[in-house]
Design a protein around this nucleic acid. Structure first.
Lengths: 215, 215, 215, 215
DNA sequence: GGGTAACCGAGACGGTACGTCTAGTCTTTAA
DNA sequence: TTAAAGACTAGACGTACCGTCTCGGTTACCC
């Protein structure tokens, strides 16, 4: 992963390296990355996503809208998926914290509900499209996994294994399979029947899903 | 759906209209569709899919490989998804019949096993890519739904509702949700962790899945 | 020139062969040429020429407008130039006879006036475009020469040589050069400054031109 | 005339704008036009014209031969006519200067001879084809007029009016008509009887033509 | 304060593929 | 045999983006 900024989620790439610590081994010479340009790019991307699908989006259009050179985009993100991923994550109200749960059952339930809520928003469509982009290229796959799917699944898997230890969930299930059983139907419905997604999944599914894995 | 051949699956479009029945109101005038070209196109598509993803595939490349004019492709299929879908379905050994099951439980089990087997082959990747293409355009979505996903899901849903009537499966589950619960994890793993797909899903999943919906 | 109808001007190709004389050695078997189609093609061509240039015109468009198969056109005319040439000539009021002139001077004058009148009509533009088409292909060149330019120039050349014999025109000029001198400026202005064509050429030019060659 | 380079003849478009004058309001941003590509395109065009007519020539073929993207051609020239015109003019030995004439009669004679010499070369055919292209489209017409025909005719017209003032040429002729009379026959023979062009026109015509307008 | 280095915008570059168009040919049924 | 209909191969059209490059300029750090 040679890209300098690694398109990672929350870090403020800019300026961080140019601290006043003269011993910092990663002192950056030259003109620092422009926060203005970065923000313009992410903002333009989000704006374009309101009317276009990820697939319809072009780097060229983003650059034009953001009044930025194409090279500036390519310098910091390896491909479209990375830009969109970053734009998505940097939306306001994206990193809402969860209240600490009382049990692992409650934890999983809350996590599923959060996921469903996320996918029901306008962003749901975009995420489905990113998931799709990921099928086309190894590189996009990795980004989607690292930035979105991985953390999400890891958190759920953690709660599941914990719940298995406490006896809340049955141990016969492989924890990874359990996560597939919990999350699979959600993504599947999102992608296969997007119009039905909101209808039935609202409050019902998490409860139902928990039954599937509870002891 | 204005396309003449409607990219439908098994029908032999050619010659069928020019029967000996002179009263046939749909007598086709003009030169009939060339079976040779049709086959060349489907064959070329399958051949190219061995080394390329659906997204990398281009109509131009298919036309070149099949020694066919681009217009001939555009005349009969509305887009790439349709061509690939058709090519996939017209592969040898694609329409294998299933033995009649003894119970609805067995029926669902067999259907899931068949699906998993299908997705484990080289075609699995292609299907995942078609599913992805479907996210990008309404038109592709429709084709994928009509030609692949719809029939498959309908068959499973039928077995599920039958099983609910006989008491094999619990009635608390909406039949559509049940299908999502059965199929979702399969597709999810295929797309999210393709490398793990073969490992764990072989024989285990269908049994496990059945537990989820059985009474 | 293997084309059966030879796209020649005035002959009524149709029916002529299928006379009632059974001993006619050139009896045509099979379905006779359709006069209806022929007329439809020529009419469609003329109609399309009202809004399009010869270059913009396509065989396909003519066939469609005339409700005729493309093959029917290709069977009887070798190319677009031939069709347009034929359509032009078969327009009503195209073969107006000239009154017999009193002198060769008058003959040439009348011929030039007729030519100018012809080129001033809507057909003038079309003729310029046919002249242009002729530059692109040998075949079109031949058709334009045989059907339009040749006869016209021959007639003028005849009058010129006659006039040279009678002493009306000076003999120092090669008769072919004389024709170039008489006609060249007309065509040149038509093609180089079409907008100025009508203005100055109306009645002036023939008189002026005659001075150039008169003894 | 929105095209940046205006396909004009002799100017060296490249770099010219980036002079050392810092106040130059037309500072060129971005990567400058590639002289290499420009030359490759013109060279390829000339090379292809040796074996093809202008009409047979395709932008695609030029791009391929010049190893250049099609867009690079479309960026700088509005159409095929413009490219060919530019290629023609940028040939070596195209802008040969004329010796200063002693009289207007001599001037016109020299101009006509130069024109005939030009049209007798391989370029003659190409020019006839460009003249033809110009009949088909308004845009091409303008380019041909501005780049070739206009300057040529203006120069001759100037000599004619001068000659009329000095009494060398008769004043009864409108100067524009005079130019048509001088040049028309040349172009007419070139286009109507290209095979006869070289034979008769060599040295005879200019003298003959001058008689037509001399006092 | 001059030098060096990485950044920035703008936009041209070689390419690939798009979906449309037309050419001229071929293959069928009907007249 | 010709006509009509329309499918066929072939290939150019002009456009849109791709990811790279090449300019003139800017903004930091370093000596």
């Amino acid at each position: 992963m040679a890209h300098p900024a690694m398109y990672n989620i929350t870090s403020d790439d800019t300026g961080a390296a140019n601290t006043n610590d003269p011993k910092n081994s990663t002192v950056r010479k030259g003109r620092p990355r422009s926060t203005k340009s970065k923000n313009a790019i992410l903002k333009a991307t989000n704006s374009l996503l309101l009317h276009k699908s990820v697939q319809e989006l072009s780097i060229e259009a983003i650059a034009k809208k953001a009044k930025v050179g194409k090279t500036t985009i390519y310098r910091w993100w390896p491909n479209k998926t990375a830009v969109v991923m970053d734009a998505l994550i940097n939306q306001p109200g994206m990193q809402t914290a969860m209240p600490t749960p009382k049990s692992n059952t409650e934890a999983v339930s809350m996590q599923l509900e959060k996921l469903i809520r996320l996918l029901q928003s306008k962003n749901g469509e975009t995420i489905a499209q990113l998931f799709s982009e990921a099928q086309a290229s190894e590189e996009s796959q990795e980004i989607f996994e690292d930035s979105f799917l991985g953390p999400l699944m890891d958190a759920i898997e953690f709660s599941v294994t914990e719940g298995q230890k406490t006896g809340e969930f049955r141990k016969s299930l492989d924890s990874k399979t359990a996560v597939d059983i919990l999350c699979g139907p959600i993504f599947f419905r999102l992608m296969a029947h997007p119009s039905d997604f909101n209808d039935h999944f609202q409050g019902d599914y998490p409860k139902e899903a928990l039954k599937l894995i509870s002891a």
